[in-house]
């Protein structure tokens, strides 16, 4: 960066830098999309596949609620919206920041080297350099569910968007935090993957079937509860406490994830894996 710019005004240079990063991120997204188009057959298929997958789960729930009209206060519509928010949130975060579920293997395999040599913010650069194709279907599914079962008012749309935001960010931050453990432990890959799977699975079942310890886990270590309670605490009626707690959880996990990654990078030894293999 030229010193002249920073002398004339720190603010101007910062804006210029931010604009540079934004342009870079946009280019990454565009390239990812173009690369996805290269595999034309897979592209549509993968997206449609995920969409169908989610629909099939809804079929299960429809059958289930046909037998048991209400379970602990939950009805079919709630579970549909739960799937909408969970899949939709997972969808947008994995489309835009597709590398977050892969942080642990990236660290363990020494794949950070390439990113470390590039003049862009490391974490952001890693995250945007992959786009999940299946997740496109998840996101569209989320939107379709809103269209089908959501509340079609301005406030309803805003609440749904907020739900998507919370859910996407939680997936992103929790998985990132778990993945960053790979900086510290040798065999964190498997564990990070399990945590991620657990989070995704748990975020698609009604929160209220769990009691006691399981429920505490859902709102702390594996905070799927902040996603899975959204149909009740955010959409059905706006429960201020829940929403603020969810926002706080997002912030807390965001902070945790970013700090773990930042501290971890300082310990990053790209070569250790090779040494182990030898």
């Amino acid at each position: 960066m030229s010193t002249a710019v920073s002398l004339t005004g720190g603010r101007g240079s910062r804006i210029r830098r931010a604009a540079g990063i934004a342009r870079y991120v946009l280019t990454c997204w565009k390239l990812n999309l173009a690369a996805a188009m290269e595999y034309r057959a897979s592209f549509f298929m993968l997206a449609v596949m995920m969409f169908v997958n989610n629909c099939i789960w809804l079929v299960f729930w429809a059958i289930f609620f046909n037998r048991f009209p209400a379970v602990n206060g939950w009805e079919l519509r709630d579970v549909m919206l739960l799937w909408g928010i969970s899949a939709g949130g997972f969808g947008w975060s994995s489309v835009l920041f597709g590398n977050y579920p892969r942080i642990a293997p990236i660290v363990a395999n020494g794949e950070l080297d390439v990113f470390l040599t590039q003049p862009k913010p490391l974490l952001l650069n890693v995250l945007v350099s992959r786009m999940s194709l299946t997740a496109m279907g998840d996101f569209l599914f989320g939107v379709a569910i809103y269209a089908l079962a959501g509340e079609h008012t301005l406030i309803g749309a805003a609440k749904y968007a907020l739900g998507l935001l919370i859910s996407g960010l939680l997936f992103l931050f929790v998985t990132l935090a778990a993945g960053s453990l790979a900086f510290f432990f040798g065999h964190a890959e498997g564990m990070a993957f399990q945590l991620f799977n657990g989070l995704v699975a748990l975020s698609t079942y009604p929160t209220d079937i769990f009691k006691g310890t399981a429920r505490i886990v859902l709102f702390t270590v594996l905070p799927a509860g902040f996603i899975s309670y959204a149909p009740i605490g955010l959409l059905r009626r706006f429960d201020g406490t829940f929403v603020w707690l969810a926002a706080a959880a997002v912030a807390a996990f965001g902070l945790l994830a970013v700090s773990l990654f930042a501290v971890g990078v300082r310990r990053y030894t790209s070569g250790n894996r090779m040494a182990m293999r030898g």
């Binding site: 048991f68 799977n197 699975a201």
Partner: peptide, 29 residues
């Protein structure tokens, strides 16, 4: 072996969820 364990763990999680789900359903009914 690792793959076996990973699959088994996932099975445990799913069963854990469904035990709770069916319990709640039977109680409700």
């Amino acid at each position: 072996r690792v793959d076996f364990i990973v699959r088994a763990l996932f099975l445990l999680l799913i069963l854990f969820i469904f035990i709770h789900l069916w319990r709640a359903a039977y109680t409700s009914s």
